[in-house]
């Protein structure tokens, strides 16, 4: 038996909206430590890693480990039927072929349940080692969203370079070129409006803007986003989802032929 209840159901709605265009399907792996997902896009260029801790839920029970194969487009259709203020409960029997989603309005006068058909998915798990990065940058998630959106209108790829001067995003295309530099800035009173640059050594990497832009669909989940960069390795774009966990996007760099 698996059962997970979250009062702030809108978080689940936002999570699925953030993932569904990148990965069409994947396994929700549930265990007594929580719920996780690792899924690559169809071209194996980027990977989504979601970790939701058991203690971040209002109630969590998982008697045995299960992999529930989810089609995110279908899950999104069902979650769109939940109100933003609803409490959401996920339920599945052991070895079930469906996941039940129950939505409860705050006033308790409307309760609905939907069954999502589960899929059998052979998932490829990648072993991602914990490592130190050359540069870690925390910035407002809205700023990240604005940068990648603006640059996507100019070019297809972005060169991200982190130096002691700051972090610079550069692109070029038919209309011309663009450079946006952010400096370390802890002046704003609100921590979520600050930019922190932790630089161990300068690094510069090139990425496809289309994916970086797609990751910014997670903006409603967190006020800040962390970018982690190391030479010749994928970038990690990480959103902390309150006390519940995190969603991380890994994107392989483009490397000179």
């Amino acid at each position: 038996m698996f059962e997970a209840r979250i009062t702030q159901g809108s978080v689940l709605k936002k999570l699925v909206e953030a993932l569904k265009e990148l990965v069409t399907e994947g396994n929700f792996d549930v265990s007594n430590t929580g719920l996780s997902l690792q899924a690559m896009d169809s071209s194996h260029v980027c990977l989504v890693s979601l970790t939701l801790r058991e203690d971040g839920f209002d109630h969590f029970r998982c008697d045995r480990n299960m992999a529930m194969g989810i089609h995110f487009g279908n899950l999104s259709k069902i979650l769109k039927c939940a109100g933003n203020e609803d409490t959401i409960t996920l339920k599945a029997e052991d070895n079930a072929d469906q996941l039940t989603l129950m939505f409860e309005a705050p006033s308790q006068d409307r309760i609905s349940d939907f069954d999502l058909k589960l899929m059998s998915i052979e998932s490829e798990h990648l072993g991602i080692p914990d490592q130190d990065y050359s540069a870690e940058v925390k910035l407002p998630s809205s700023e990240y969203q604005r940068i990648v959106r603006d640059l996507t209108s100019i070019g297809d790829t972005v060169l991200i370079s982190a130096t002691k001067e700051g972090i610079k995003f550069s692109t070029s295309g038919d209309v011309g070129t663009a450079n946006i530099t952010l400096r370390h800035n802890t002046t704003p009173e609100k921590p979520e409006e600050q930019t922190f640059i932790d630089l161990k050594e300068p690094v510069a990497l090139t990425f496809a803007l289309r994916y970086l832009n797609n990751f910014s669909k997670a903006t409603p989940l967190a006020p800040q986003v962390k970018l982690s960069l190391t030479k010749d390795l994928p970038i990690v774009v990480e959103y902390q989802v309150g006390e519940l966990g995190s969603v991380r996007f890994y994107l392989a760099p483009k490397i000179d032929d």
Binding site: H44, V45, C46, E124, L126, I128, P234, A252, D256, D257
Partner: peptide, 14 residues
């Protein structure tokens, strides 16, 4: 022109 790498180039399959 830079070439797009595959994630599997970086991380081993478990």
């Amino acid at each position: 022109t830079p070439v797009q790498n595959d994630l599997k180039e970086f991380y081993a399959l478990l």
